[in-house]
Computed example of a mutant assay.
Amino acid sequence: MALQDVVEQAVTGLGYDLVEVERSAGGLLRVTIDMPWKGRGAGEQSVNVEDCEKVSRQLQYALEVEAVDYKRLEVSSPGIDRPLRNESDFERFAGEVVDITLKQPMGEAGAGQVAANRKKFRGTLEKAGDRWQVVWSDAPEEKPGRRVSKKKQPAPLQALGFSLDELREARLASIVDFKGRKSRAQGEQ
């Protein structure tokens, strides 16, 4: 049985989602797990140390039975810059700020002020029909305490539509607010 299948079977058998399996030089086997998504409106849970320990114990037995060669096993949560891999990940994190990297530059499709050779974008993830889009503004962030003229026009929003097969990589943007100790999404509600 392939390593990916062994790990996925052990992780899903315990009720978790497998996010990523990574093998590094030196025998490190890194497994990233997450709580299953229950849908919009359901309380979002996160992986804790006990969850990682439970999966680690189960994986040690499963990997020994399958005679998988590794020196060190590391089980962790996806963190604040979680990778987005499949359609359910994109549905789960719609409305969040994401960083995406395209496989190919935009080419002639680049409209407006976006450079045609640009591959990386950061913006809010939205569903647009049967495709996904990332929406952003190139306006600089306002500095706290600085007055803003009421006459100043906001920078226009830009959007880029894409399909999942056009992506090289997609991750949640790692935005941390140390002052309020909460994410931007929580602060806006």
Results as ranks from 00 to 15, higher is better:
residue 55 V to A: 06
residue 36 P to G: 14
residue 179 K to A: 15
residue 105 P to Y: 11
residue 118 R to K: 02
residue 102 L to S: 01
residue 35 M to T: 10
residue 31 V to L: 02
residue 94 A to N: 07
residue 31 V to P: 00
residue 84 L to G: 01
residue 71 K to V: 12
residue 114 V to I: 03
residue 167 L to F: 09
residue 113 Q to C: 13
residue 64 E to L: 07
residue 129 G to I: 06
residue 94 A to R: 04
residue 113 Q to L: 15
residue 158 Q to W: 09
residue 22 E to W: 09
residue 30 R to K: 06
residue 39 G to Y: 06
residue 2 A to P: 08
residue 47 V to S: 05
residue 1 M to G: 12
residue 114 V to A: 03
residue 188 E to A: 14
residue 59 L to M: 01
residue 103 K to C: 07
residue 27 G to T: 03
residue 161 G to M: 08
residue 38 K to M: 10
residue 68 V to H: 02
residue 21 V to S: 04
residue 149 S to N: 10
residue 133 Q to A: 07
residue 107 G to L: 05
residue 74 E to F: 10
residue 12 T to S: 05
residue 140 P to S: 09
residue 55 V to G: 04
residue 80 I to D: 11
residue 178 F to V: 10
residue 171 R to T: 11
residue 138 D to H: 09
residue 141 E to F: 15
residue 36 P to S: 10
residue 3 L to G: 09
residue 114 V to Q: 00
residue 102 L to H: 01
residue 88 S to C: 14
residue 70 Y to P: 00
residue 164 L to M: 06
residue 53 E to A: 12
residue 101 T to F: 14
residue 1 M to C: 09
residue 83 P to E: 09
residue 169 E to H: 11
residue 150 K to S: 14
residue 156 P to W: 10
residue 76 S to W: 08
residue 61 Y to G: 14
residue 68 V to D: 04
residue 19 V to G: 02
residue 36 P to T: 12
residue 59 L to V: 05
residue 25 A to F: 08
residue 39 G to H: 06
residue 21 V to F: 02
residue 74 E to S: 10
residue 40 R to L: 12
residue 146 R to Q: 14
residue 125 L to P: 00
residue 84 L to P: 00
residue 84 L to Y: 06
residue 165 D to R: 05
residue 118 R to A: 04
residue 37 W to G: 07
residue 13 G to M: 03
residue 143 K to P: 03
residue 54 K to P: 01
residue 8 E to Y: 13
residue 25 A to C: 09
residue 107 G to P: 00
residue 30 R to F: 08
residue 179 K to I: 13
residue 137 S to N: 03
residue 110 G to E: 08
residue 26 G to K: 02
residue 116 A to C: 08
residue 14 L to G: 04
residue 18 L to V: 06
residue 101 T to A: 15
residue 117 N to K: 14
residue 21 V to H: 05
residue 11 V to H: 01
residue 48 N to A: 09
residue 185 A to D: 14
residue 48 N to V: 12
residue 169 E to G: 11
residue 100 I to E: 04
residue 182 K to Y: 15
residue 179 K to Q: 15
residue 173 A to Q: 05
residue 118 R to Y: 03
residue 128 A to L: 07
residue 84 L to E: 01
residue 47 V to P: 00
residue 122 R to T: 10
residue 150 K to M: 14
residue 62 A to K: 02
residue 40 R to K: 08
residue 148 V to E: 11
residue 51 D to M: 03
residue 53 E to Y: 12
residue 59 L to A: 05
residue 17 D to F: 14
residue 11 V to S: 03
residue 41 G to N: 06
